[in-house]
Every structure is written in structure tokens, then in C-alpha cells.
């Protein structure tokens, strides 16, 4: 009787752990690899401060409290830097004072705990000064991650 009870408890615990793990490892709706991209500005576009960056992904973008992924924007530094801009929705306004000239930006998809989720995309902008943004014709930025 006691043994049966222990077995039942073990089964229930296993089932609960399986459900938790299933909930934890749920990824993109299609079940494929995570993706991230930048639809605006185009790679090499001329921009002026402030300018908007629009990110795309096959997973929902949101703040860490939502349990969703988010994006870090790194300006002229690597992904291991502690200096970045947080992107908690698909569009973000870049207000940092970038000097006029060419700048390399990495958009990195992050887990809610801010660890690297894998995919990232690198693009460049040419800052011309403050004023209105002009996303002139250039191909979309290419991604270093899988499935873009």
C-alpha cells in the first residue's frame, strides 16, 4: 500500500516535471530555430539621431517579466559588452549620441534572463546628425544566425 502510494507520488512528480520542462522549453510556434532580423533601417542607411529600429523575430518580443525574448542593440562593440540598448517591443527609438559617420550595430536576440539566445544580425548606419531619418535604398541587413 505504502509502496503503491510512493509509486503514484513518483509518477505524479514525473508528470509535473515533464509539464514544467515542456513549458520551459517552448520555443517558436513553428518549432524551428529562433530568428531575429532588422527591417528598418536598411543596412548602410543614412540616419540622424534619433532614429527608429524595427526588429523582427519568429518569437514574441517583450520585457523579461512577460517571459518573452527581447533584443539587445550593441553599438560598435561586441555582444559580450555590458553597454547596450534594450528592445522590449518590435520598434525602438535610438537616442544615444552617436558621432557622425559609420556605426556598426548588432541586434542580438536574448532570453528573458539576458543570456544570449543565439541569433544576431549585424548592420551599419551612417549617422549624418540630428534631424529627420532617411532610410535610403539598400538591401536588408543579413543575419549571422540560422534561418533568416
Amino acid at each position: 500500500m505504502v509502496l503503491a502510494g510512493l509509486k503514484l507520488r513518483g509518477w505524479a512528480l514525473g508528470a509535473a516535471l515533464s509539464m514544467i520542462l515542456a513549458a520551459c522549453t517552448s520555443g517558436p510556434s513553428g518549432g524551428g530555430a529562433l530568428t531575429v532580423g532588422v527591417s528598418s533601417p536598411k543596412d548602410g542607411a543614412q540616419v540622424s539621431i534619433p532614429f527608429s529600429v524595427t526588429v523582427t523575430s519568429n518569437v514574441a518580443i517583450g520585457p523579461p517579466e512577460s517571459g518573452n525574448h527581447h533584443v539587445h542593440l550593441y553599438f560598435d562593440v561586441g555582444k559580450d559588452s555590458g553597454d547596450y540598448q534594450l528592445v522590449y517591443s518590435n520598434t525602438v527609438q535610438v537616442t544615444r549620441q552617436l558621432t557622425p559617420g559609420k556605426h556598426t550595430i548588432i541586434a542580438s536576440l536574448r532570453n528573458p534572463d539576458h543570456s544570449d539566445a543565439g541569433p544576431s544580425v549585424t548592420f551599419t548606419v551612417n549617422v549624418t546628425g540630428s534631424g529627420s531619418e532617411s532610410g535610403s535604398a539598400a538591401p536588408s541587413p543579413t543575419s549571422s544566425g540560422p534561418n533568416y
Binding site: 513549458a23 520551459c24 517571459g67 532570453n111 534572463d113
Partner: peptide, 16 residues
């Protein structure tokens, strides 16, 4: 838990 789970509904509870 937050380090091991990374994301999802369990992450939300652990973060809270």
C-alpha cells in the same frame, strides 16, 4: 531556477 529555465511561464513565476 531563472538561470536554468531561461524563458517561458515558469520563468515568469520564478522572476516574480
Amino acid at each position: 531556477g531563472l538561470v536554468l529555465v531561461h524563458f517561458g511561464p515558469v520563468f515568469v513565476v520564478l522572476a516574480a
